[in-house]
């Protein structure tokens, strides 16, 4: 029974969306910032609102029947308060501004963390937000950040879903809502394969790497017999009882990886992307320097999070 009713309601909503795109939620995506105004906020009574209205009607008829003016006055007062609560529900959303949406990085299949920046000139309480079947309640005072988890399925640009912002503030009798459809996409990185061979490196490219003293200052330690005098940290030792010696990090030598799309001819497109993604991840984790050759694009040797993000982004948007 319930399921049938819900299906019926869904069909009706779908029909309304087709027929009345301006009225319902089929709003075109629009650029940020989005500010809610009276042209896009809708209000309807909630089920409780309808019930309360029926109750008010009963009270009104009772007061009139018994010619009881005090009861009539208070019924009118309660009814007027309910009507005023409708305006307050509107005011909760009116002027609310979605100023920015920031997205973290995520690989396909994992949830992507979105940060929504809401701002308002005055305090808004009990604002609620529906996104992908999840409801969040929050208050906006000045600016408020709201974190959402956006599920992802495949790599590439993913459009943000429609978001419904609504409120039944203050009495739960009226529900004001508005649809937000930000014209913003988030980039979903490809999912690396679970396991596979390491990259095959060209033989001539493998230069022999000598052990070399590290250059990065790692820590200060106590002087031990045999330490070179030029490694003593004189300035630091002056503030200390014992001599302190600079200890240098000596990283294990790493070869540079040149990752090439064209070297993986035996695999299909997605498998190539997944393998390259895994290699990129390993190279970044091991602190290697790496370059990426893709059809139509070459990313030169480099390392670090920005470089990694650039490479993954390039993989993500491959056709």
């Amino acid at each position: 029974m319930h399921a049938a009713l819900r299906r019926l309601a869904q069909r009706a909503v779908a029909r309304a969306e087709r027929r009345l795109p301006a009225l319902t939620r089929l709003r075109r995506p629009e650029p940020l910032p989005i500010e809610l105004n009276r042209r896009r906020i809708y209000i309807l009574p909630t089920a409780f609102g309808f019930g309360f209205g029926a109750l008010l009607l009963v009270m009104l008829v009772g007061a009139l029947n018994y010619a009881n003016n005090a009861a009539l006055l208070l019924t009118c007062l309660l009814g007027a308060a309910a009507a005023a609560s409708m305006l307050l529900a509107f005011r909760t959303l009116d002027g609310l501004r979605l100023s920015d949406i920031r997205a973290d990085h995520a690989v396909a299949g994992e949830a992507l963390r979105l940060t929504l920046d809401f701002s308002a000139s005055r305090l808004r309480e009990a604002v609620r937000l529906d996104c992908m079947g999840e409801t969040r309640a929050f208050a906006v005072d000045g600016t408020t950040e709201l974190h959402l988890q956006l599920p992802t399925t495949r790599r590439g640009w993913q459009a943000l879903p429609r978001i419904r912002v609504w409120s039944t503030w203050p009495l739960g009798m009226f529900r004001a809502w508005s649809w937000l459809h930000p014209q913003q996409s988030v980039l979903v990185w490809p999912r690396p394969e679970q396991a596979g061979p390491p990259p095959v490196l060209p033989a001539d490219g493998q230069e022999r790497l000598r052990p070399q003293p590290g250059e990065e200052l790692a820590a200060l330690r106590d002087y031990r017999r045999g330490d070179a005098p030029r490694h003593i940290a004189w300035k630091a030792s002056a503030r200390h009882h014992d001599l302190l010696v600079k200890d240098f990090d000596r990283p294990e030598p790493r070869e540079t990886w040149s990752l090439d799309w064209h070297a993986l001819r035996s695999l299909d497109r997605e498998a190539r992307i997944a393998r390259l993604a895994r290699w990129l991840g390993e190279a970044e984790a091991q602190g290697r320097r790496y370059s990426l050759q893709l059809p139509g694009e070459r990313i030169e040797v480099g390392s670090g999070p920005v470089h990694y993000a650039r490479c993954m982004g390039a993989l993500a948007v491959l056709p």
Partner: peptide, 10 residues
Amino acid sequence: ALRSLEPGRR
């Protein structure tokens, strides 16, 4: 009481 039932209020 009705106000207090709304989540996300101060």
